[in-house]
């Protein structure tokens, strides 16, 4: 209620500080989206309503921050997120869930949506993620490479190979020639990480971004084979997007210099 009242009170084209900020932001991001159908006057276009973003669980921290920045830059808009396993999200989108934007943790899951004709235009890679070993704080078992994970008595959890982090871990382990039997194949990367955070497992192979997000509850160990299993993160506007204009602007923000800074700050690698 209050939001709509405020919106009607403010004259549409008054060059307030906020509007200037919007214009600057759109100008910054314009290089990323040249297909703006609003033409030259696009910067003055007033965005409103809710943008629904379905995003991979590993994007939670960075996208939440970008969502808040988007709402500040575009008063009257709201960004709502549904974070989850990319495959689950892809299945809900092809099943008809009303979403505007899909950001997946792997090209394979994005492909299930594009194959079903669910996206508007081709998806763009906006970030990359690498694997890291998450160990207990202080690395008490002195893990420095993948082969150290096979030490007897060490409890290691991996993601199940049906989810992106699991297939990436499998690729890296194969590249290192390490035959590892974990105590559990977890259903997604956050539950794999949580097993180490709760000290139930001694180590997990997860994304670098998850290690960052966990702060000092885990310690990250980089390993050279992670370069062999880099995950591309694609983002796309969805065909049946209820709020396509605002969705485009959000994608532009993710792909802008500002968006990249946020993503690399969270541990992602630039595409």
């Amino acid at each position: 209620m209050t939001r709509s009242v405020r919106r009607t009170r403010r004259p549409r084209r008054t060059p307030t500080v906020a509007a200037a900020a919007v214009a600057a932001l759109l100008a910054l991001s314009a290089c990323g989206s040249a297909d703006s159908d609003a033409g030259g006057g696009g910067a003055a276009e007033k965005l409103s309503g809710t943008v629904t973003v379905f995003a991979a669980a590993s994007l939670k921290e960075s996208f939440t921050a970008l969502g808040e920045r988007f709402e500040q830059a575009h008063p009257g808009t709201r960004v709502t997120f549904s974070f989850g396993g990319s495959d689950t999200l892809a299945a809900s989108i092809t099943g008809g869930a009303p979403a505007d934007v899909f950001a997946a943790a792997s090209p394979k899951t994005m492909k299930t949506v594009t194959d079903a004709g669910g996206t508007d235009g081709a998806p763009a890679t906006f970030a990359r993620n690498r694997l890291e070993i998450a160990t207990l704080p202080g690395n008490p078992h002195h893990v420095s490479a993948l082969k150290d994970l096979t030490a007897p008595g060490l409890k290691v959890v991996l993601c199940d190979r049906t989810v992106p982090c699991g297939s990436a871990a499998r690729t890296a382990l194969d590249a290192a020639g390490v035959d590892l039997t974990p105590v559990s194949y977890e259903e997604d990367v956050k539950s794999a990480l949580n097993k180490v955070v709760l000290k139930e497992a001694d180590a997990a192979v997860v994304y670098r971004t998850d290690v960052r997000a966990a702060g000092d509850k885990v310690e990250g160990v980089d390993f050279p084979e992670s370069a062999r299993a880099v995950n591309d993160y694609p983002i796309a506007l969805l065909k049946d997007a209820p709020n396509a204009a605002a969705a485009k602007a959000f994608i532009a923000l993710v792909r802008s210099a500002d968006g990249r800074r946020t993503l690399t700050g969270a541990g992602f690698v630039e595409p």
Partner: peptide, 13 residues
């Protein structure tokens, strides 16, 4: 189950 016992074929799956 998956949270407490994890997922390993033949043992907890």
């Amino acid at each position: 189950t998956i949270t407490f016992a994890g997922n390993f074929p033949g043992r907890t799956q």
